[in-house]
């Protein structure tokens, strides 16, 4: 296959996976939130259980007028959703679904993931600034402030994994977790990093990931009851859809990263390595589903924190803990 054909195939595959998973996640959120709140949720769309509701919503948004406020900086305003959705998309490039099922296995995979995923904040800031709306502006600035709070703990948490694995390539991190840890009665037992002492790192990573995704309890940039949806206030139609899809795609992407780094990615103890190219994607998706459910569960249980409380939490607890975690990972690595 020529280079361009492969590239095209990969792009289509990533797009399909991302959009498909985002729609499934939206549906899951609609249904789970409804039942947690003693509601039914979508019921009629699609004939059974309202499975077509996300599609119907998407179609509705596509028909809507694409409004640009008169005073908005229209170029930046139009560009912002693309930045967000591209950031959500690009993360998928390095996530391994199986030993050879990876779009591009970068040596600096972990670094790439962190760099690209924080791009979406740039899009949010652009949207907030360009909307010419005070609520949007506050929302955008809150997102920027939030970036300072969670980016460092996120980095420190990933760093500990990198120390323990001795590599930054995500495929190799999974491979390290799939290696036998110790042998009991002739059966080699492997364990993901969360079992091998990374429980603190996993917790920090999840907290920071939720902050990056601006979901409750850290949804201050959106904060419906305060800022009337913050940077999203002025968006409508297809651009809003892009933000919306981007949000859910990054949610799945962050869960996939967390699963890869801490939960063993596509590998599962007991599954023979030869079948991983077939079983691997499903194993990963199962782990992703677990983490996505956790995020949905948080969102519909807890209230929102304040921006300064997030900062205090990040700087007073998460960063010292993250540093401690690196030290622990080092000790673990040297001793074992």
């Amino acid at each position: 296959m020529s280079f361009w054909a492969t590239l095209g195939l990969q792009v289509v595959a990533v797009l399909a996976v991302m959009l498909g998973l985002a729609l499934v996640t939206i549906y899951a959120e609609l249904k789970i939130s409804a039942h947690m709140q003693s509601r039914i949720g979508p019921y009629y769309a699609g004939g059974r259980w309202g499975w077509a509701q996300p599609l119907a919503d998407g179609l509705k948004f596509l028909q809507k007028e694409d409004l640009v406020p008169r005073l908005a900086d229209s170029t930046v305003y139009r560009l912002a959703p693309y930045v967000v959705i591209v950031a959500a998309l690009a993360v998928w490039v390095v996530i391994p679904f199986g030993p050879s099922l990876v779009v591009r296995d970068l040596d600096l995979g972990a670094f790439y993931v962190l760099a690209v995923s924080s791009l979406s904040t740039l899009g949010v800031l652009m949207a907030g600034w360009a909307s010419a709306n005070k609520y949007s502006l506050i929302g955008g600035l809150r997102a920027a402030a939030q970036l300072i709070a969670y980016e460092l703990p996120l980095l420190l948490a990933v760093l500990a994994v990198v120390v323990q694995a001795g590599t930054m390539s995500l495929s190799e991190i999974v491979a390290v977790q799939a290696e036998p840890w110790f042998v009991v009665a002739g059966v080699p037992i492997s364990a993901p990093f969360i079992v091998k002492g990374q429980i603190i790192g996993f917790t920090i990573f999840m907290i920071a990931a939720i902050a990056e995704l601006s979901r409750i309890p850290f949804d201050m940039p959106i904060a419906e009851s305060e800022l009337t949806m913050g940077y999203l206030t002025e968006y409508s139609g297809i651009r809003f859809t892009m933000f919306f899809l981007g949000e859910y795609a990054s949610m799945v992407a962050m869960s996939a990263i967390a699963a890869t780094l801490y939960l063993g990615g596509y590998a599962l103890p007991g599954v023979p390595a030869a079948t991983l190219n077939v079983v691997g994607p499903f194993v990963l998706l199962g782990k992703v589903a677990l983490l996505v459910f956790l995020m949905i569960w948080f969102r519909w249980t807890w209230p929102r924190l304040r921006e300064d409380q997030l900062q205090a939490m990040a700087w007073r607890w998460l960063i010292p803990l993250g540093l401690l975690n690196i030290v622990l990972a080092g000790i673990f690595k040297v001793v074992l």
Binding site: A34, H35, I40, T301
Partner: peptide, 21 residues
């Protein structure tokens, strides 16, 4: 308190909603 709340919503997830269609 946070975990108690999580338990409460989890219980609610498996309860029958009182919705009238």
């Amino acid at each position: 308190g946070l975990w108690k709340g999580m338990w409460a919503t989890l219980k609610a997830l498996f309860r029958r909603p009182p919705t009238v269609f």
